[in-house]
């Protein structure tokens, strides 16, 4: 279900129907609509602006550490004025060290981890996005790391950026991504004995139907949705 000119990696799911209803509830005819959800694809050089400078610096620094850039960086996406480096998870810590220490890069601040769950993106269901900020050069980039549901392990960068401590705990709490090497990966937002990881797509919203006099309205995740 991949349209022309788009690589497999960028299709994260398929949208079926228009109103999130299965069965005979939808009589509009839009129920048979099936379309792939395509995220922005990898970009070709030159990326434009200072993106090329940063990408060159990164590649050179990785080479100096005997890491060929092609094996570390999966793809680079330049979209809407932001550059995202998709990095293989095994090399994440080294990559973070490069970002922090190289004088041409100097990304002093990591703005935390954001987990995103794409259940239909087989083999790459869990994404962890790390925004980085360089105060010296006044730049922002994003590093994205993927992990499959079957093996949700990503190395922890707390040793390089200690500020990620609580962010990684939160991502573990909400998505089940295990950050190897984290000093104390415990639940932080949910109660300590909570079962499940609430912000995954297979975890229900958990609301209750709203009672009125003579009627109920179903919880938000059971209502009609416009896709």
């Amino acid at each position: 279900m991949v349209p022309d000119g788009v690589s497999e990696l960028d299709v994260i799911g398929v949208r079926q129907g228009s109103f999130n209803i299965a069965g005979s509830g939808d009589t509009s005819g839009f129920g048979g609509l099936v379309s792939p959800i395509v995220m922005p694809g990898p970009s070709e050089r030159p990326y434009g602006g200072w993106f090329d400078e940063v990408a060159d610096e990164i590649e050179l620094s990785l080479q100096a550490r005997n890491l060929p850039a092609a094996s570390v960086i999966e793809k680079v996406v330049v979209d809407r004025g932001e550059i995202t480096f998709f990095v293989h998870r095994h090399h994440l810590v080294e990559f973070a060290r490069v970002l922090r220490d190289e004088p041409g890069l100097r990304f002093e601040m990591c703005m935390g981890v954001n987990g995103v769950h794409y259940p239909e993106d087989a083999g790459r269901e869990l994404h962890a996005c790390y925004p980085f900020l360089s105060i010296t050069h006044n730049r922002r980039i994003r590093v994205e790391v993927t992990a499959p549901d079957a093996d949700p392990h990503i190395p922890s960068i707390v040793g390089v950026y200690p500020s990620n401590d609580w962010h990684e705990r939160e991502t573990w709490d909400f998505f089940g991504i295990v950050f190897d090497g984290h000093p104390s990966l415990t639940r932080i937002e949910m109660p300590d004995d909570w079962a499940g990881h609430p912000q995954r797509k297979d975890y229900p919203l958990g609301g209750i139907p709203v009672e009125y006099k003579g009627a109920t309205i179903p919880a938000p995740d059971n209502r009609r949705a416009y896709n």
Binding site: I37, V38, M39, P40, D79, R80, E82, T84, M111, C129, P131, L133, R140, R142
Partner: peptide, 8 residues
């Protein structure tokens, strides 16, 4: 449109 953005 699909994609991601970060604004601070």
């Amino acid at each position: 449109p699909p994609g991601q953005a970060y604004a601070a």
